[in-house]
């Protein structure tokens, strides 16, 4: 019996495992870099919109209302973050950092959107959605699915989702401004009082009658 062969086989197997681990880590790092680059781009876009908004003063509403601010980019970023979070875990420091930055961008977009709406007399439909994925909210995943579905059905519906437990002062300010009780999932629909607990598609559509004013994905495609 040759012990060398046993040891060689062990070495090769360990090397295969090491290579798989290395490739996975590299790809995850690439994903983080990709998200970071997207966040930077969105950050620049928001800054540009804010500057444009301040510069114009008497805003040219026809320009702004015809191009919804960063909606597509934020949605795409959300789904990428979700992949990174599921691969690396919600406690991963990179993921937490990116989520914080994402939440800030959402808040800035939300504030900008409200200011634009006020000046241009627009009536955007938006939902501030608060969740946690620390395991204490059984219904949060389902609530997220419902919102993803609605966002697909109504492309101009703005959904801002926030991890309630994220340690971010701007987010704390938002939750206290909205007088959230801490019960999750929670929805703030168009500046109204918070709604708590899981809601199905039908229930949310009843809660948001304004959805009827929005173009659906099928009508928008025509």
């Amino acid at each position: 019996m040759s012990w060398k062969k046993y040891i060689l086989a062990f070495g090769i197997t360990a090397a295969i495992f090491g290579t798989a681990f290395y490739i996975t880590a590299r790809l995850d790092a690439e994903r983080i870099a990709d998200i970071r680059a997207t966040e930077n781009q969105i950050s620049i876009d928001i800054l540009s919109s804010e500057t444009q908004f301040e510069l114009l003063g008497n805003l040219d509403c026809s320009t702004v209302s015809s191009s919804p601010v960063l909606l597509g980019e934020l949605n795409s970023l959300a789904s990428r973050l979700s992949v990174a979070e599921s691969n690396l875990g919600s406690s991963n420091s990179d993921v937490v950092q990116l989520k914080k930055q994402y939440s800030l961008l959402e808040i800035k977009d939300y504030v900008l959107m409200r200011e634009v709406a006020q000046k241009c007399h627009l009536k955007p439909v938006y939902i501030l959605y608060f969740y946690t994925n620390d395991g204490s909210c059984q219904d949060c995943a389902r609530a997220g699915e419902v919102l993803t579905y609605l966002r697909g059905q109504y492309p101009t519906l703005r959904v801002y989702s926030f991890d309630y437990n994220l340690d971010l002062s701007a987010l704390h300010t938002l939750t206290s401004l909205r007088s959230l009780s801490g019960q999750l999932p929670a929805f703030v629909i168009n500046n109204r009082a918070p709604v708590y607990g899981f809601k199905s598609v039908d229930q949310l559509e009843t809660l948001i009658p304004e959805l009827k004013t929005l173009a659906t994905s099928t009508s928008a495609a025509k």
Binding site: L27, D34, S79, R80, R142, E145, S200, V201, D202
Partner: peptide, 20 residues
């Protein structure tokens, strides 16, 4: 529970979404 009607969603084709 969600009452999401059966619908097709286009799969993500970018490498980012591959299971790696």
């Amino acid at each position: 529970a969600t009452r999401i009607p059966p619908h097709l969603t286009a799969p993500h084709l970018e490498w980012f979404y591959l299971n790696t």
